[in-house]
Amino acid sequence: MRGRLASLLLEKSYRAGEVTLTSGRKSDYYFDCKQTALYPEGAWLIGNLLFDLLPADIVGVGGMTLGADPLVTAVSIASYLRNRPMPAFIVRKAAKGHGTNQFLEGLSNFQPGDRVALLEDVVTTGGTLLTVIDRVEAAGLVVGAVVTVLDRKEGGAERLAERGFPLLSVFTRDALLAAANPQPAS
């Protein structure tokens, strides 16, 4: 499954060439995981591989809209199919301006103190995840894991670790390239 996901990610989500990232940093590649996560096989693979990384005490998954939306849905469905159902939640970029005026959607499926995992498509500096952690904790949930499809290895894991949140990842850039292009055994 990991090798197949790597191939799909390289085909649909990975683009070589100079780009400016959300963080303002320059990079020699762009990774748009949504292209793979919104493809049926890609969603199935991502859902299962992220689910496999979750600690046993996690009861639900969530993340910042828009990047995490297909991820949390895929993991929630995979969890149900694997007899460990986990509800999902989405964290808004801005509080809802009416009704309950909340940041989290899907919160009614959780109890205060529930341990949840935060999902992210790609981690560069970790800034988005630190914002999400604050909002999730303010809503009464406990962040028990932070999981990403791709860790760019550009400081995000270290920033999260400083706050006590080790980053779990399906791939780093080097691991993604290696998994998609395995070397024949000699």
Rank of each mutant, 00 (worst) to 15 (best):
residue 60 G to K: 00
residue 88 A to V: 07
residue 56 A to P: 10
residue 55 P to V: 05
residue 62 G to Q: 03
residue 84 R to W: 00
residue 87 P to T: 10
residue 51 F to I: 07
residue 83 N to F: 15
residue 91 V to E: 09
residue 66 L to W: 03
residue 57 D to R: 08
residue 63 G to K: 01
residue 82 R to N: 15
residue 85 P to H: 08
residue 87 P to K: 05
residue 84 R to D: 08
residue 62 G to H: 07
residue 78 A to P: 05
residue 60 G to H: 00
residue 88 A to N: 08
residue 64 M to C: 12
residue 76 S to Y: 05
residue 76 S to G: 14
residue 79 S to Y: 00
residue 66 L to C: 07
residue 91 V to G: 06
residue 62 G to I: 01
residue 83 N to I: 03
residue 82 R to T: 14
residue 90 I to Y: 09
residue 67 G to M: 11
residue 82 R to P: 04
residue 64 M to Y: 05
residue 86 M to A: 06
residue 84 R to V: 12
residue 69 D to L: 12
residue 53 L to R: 14
residue 75 V to R: 04
residue 64 M to V: 13
residue 76 S to L: 04
residue 72 V to Y: 06
residue 57 D to S: 09
residue 63 G to T: 01
residue 59 V to P: 03
residue 83 N to L: 10
residue 80 Y to T: 14
residue 67 G to I: 02
residue 88 A to K: 12
residue 52 D to E: 13
residue 69 D to I: 06
residue 71 L to G: 07
residue 91 V to H: 03
residue 59 V to T: 14
residue 80 Y to K: 12
residue 67 G to R: 02
residue 72 V to P: 00
residue 78 A to T: 09
residue 66 L to V: 15
residue 77 I to W: 03
residue 50 L to W: 05
residue 78 A to G: 11
residue 90 I to S: 11
residue 77 I to V: 15
residue 77 I to M: 13
residue 89 F to V: 00
residue 83 N to Y: 12
residue 54 L to S: 06
residue 67 G to H: 08
residue 72 V to D: 02
residue 53 L to W: 05
residue 75 V to C: 06
residue 75 V to I: 10
residue 54 L to H: 05
residue 67 G to N: 07
residue 54 L to T: 00
residue 69 D to P: 10
residue 70 P to L: 07
residue 66 L to I: 14
residue 90 I to W: 04
residue 79 S to E: 00
residue 56 A to N: 12
residue 62 G to F: 00
residue 90 I to G: 02
residue 90 I to H: 06
residue 86 M to N: 02
residue 55 P to D: 05
residue 89 F to R: 00
residue 80 Y to F: 15
residue 76 S to N: 10
residue 60 G to R: 00
residue 61 V to C: 07
residue 91 V to F: 08
residue 64 M to Q: 11
residue 60 G to P: 00
residue 82 R to M: 11
residue 65 T to R: 08
residue 61 V to P: 02
residue 85 P to R: 12
residue 76 S to R: 01
residue 70 P to I: 08
residue 86 M to F: 01
residue 88 A to Y: 10
residue 65 T to A: 15
residue 74 A to V: 06
residue 55 P to F: 04
residue 55 P to W: 06
residue 91 V to I: 15
residue 62 G to Y: 02
residue 65 T to M: 12
residue 52 D to Q: 13
residue 50 L to Q: 11
residue 84 R to M: 09
residue 54 L to C: 06
residue 83 N to C: 12
residue 54 L to D: 00
residue 86 M to W: 00
residue 51 F to D: 00
residue 87 P to M: 10
residue 71 L to C: 11
residue 51 F to W: 11
residue 83 N to W: 13
residue 69 D to S: 09
residue 75 V to H: 05
residue 82 R to L: 13
residue 73 T to W: 04
residue 88 A to C: 14
residue 61 V to H: 03
residue 82 R to A: 12
residue 79 S to V: 01
residue 64 M to F: 09
residue 52 D to N: 14
residue 80 Y to D: 13
residue 54 L to Q: 01
residue 53 L to A: 09
residue 80 Y to A: 15
